[in-house]
């Protein structure tokens, strides 16, 4: 009588439906924590990468040189992502177009801009990966937990109906065990919602910086292309 019910015992004693609900919630919770930590790492890296790349980009070094450095990095097996990927997409397209005869300056800029848009989309996909999962864990797992609880309480009251004397002790373990499902739902949902909001804001900020980089870079390219055309015309 001095032993309190341990949580594990309670869970083991739960009905199959409640156990299934709990297992689902546990899996959702583990998965969402996995994704949370992964997102933290990826977003931090993307941020550091972008800062580093912008430093190099505006340091005044030759852009062709920058492009070549990236190519050797790819050959060595590194993944190029973030700002540098945008730069490479735009620069590659621009140099391809500028090699063609009688290319209009505007068309060249437009083409490289389009290439950078595509790269930007790819980046945003990469950064936003798994965020929808966090959102749905955050919004549905309290309901799933609640379902488990209602089901468990339903059962413990049904058991009460058949017994002749109604004591609190007859229903208390069942209710306690059912409430664990709600607790687990909340445990899964709260970090997921917090993380989703935070990550969504961070990804937005990063994408904005990417976009402004694209604009700045296409401004550069435009100047370059007009200078080229003028040289050719003379």
């Amino acid at each position: 009588m001095t032993d309190e019910l341990s949580v594990i015992e309670l869970i083991m004693g739960a009905s199959l439906t409640v156990k299934l609900v709990m297992a689902t919630l546990l899996a959702a919770s583990v998965a969402s924590w996995f994704m949370i930590v992964q997102r933290v790492i990826i977003l931090q890296r993307a941020n550091a990468e972008l800062l580093d790349f912008e430093d190099r980009f505006w340091s005044g070094m030759d852009l062709a040189q920058l492009y070549r450095e990236g190519s050797t990095a790819i050959d060595e097996g590194f993944d190029i992502t973030g700002g540098e990927a945008l730069f490479r997409a735009g620069f590659k397209e621009f140099s391809k177009l500028s090699r063609q005869e009688n290319m209009d300056a505007d068309a060249m800029v437009e083409g490289s801009r389009r290439a950078m848009r595509v790269a930007l989309m790819r980046e945003s996909d990469r950064l936003e990966q798994h965020l929808p999962f966090l959102a749905s864990v955050g919004s549905t797992s309290p309901y799933v937990g609640l379902f488990g609880t209602v089901w468990g309480i339903m059962h413990s009251f049904r058991g009460l109906a058949t017994s002749s004397q109604a004591t609190l002790a007859a229903v208390a373990p069942g209710i306690s065990e059912a409430l664990i499902a709600t607790a687990m739902g909340l445990f899964a949902a709260i970090p997921a919602v917090l993380a989703y909001n935070r990550f969504a804001a961070k990804v937005d900020a990063l994408l904005n910086r990417y976009e402004s980089f694209v604009d700045e870079f296409s401004g550069l390219l435009q100047r370059q292309s007009y200078a080229q055309k003028r040289d050719q015309a003379q």
């Binding site: 309190e4 019910l5 790492i41």
Partner: peptide, 26 residues
């Protein structure tokens, strides 16, 4: 790094929670 660390942390967080809860109750 990108898969291992998050997996480790996720499992640890849950283990910690279970231990705290079990310990707290007992």
């Amino acid at each position: 790094l990108i898969i291992g660390i998050p997996a480790l942390v996720a499992v640890l967080v849950h283990l910690f929670f279970v231990i705290v809860m079990e310990g707290g109750w007992t």
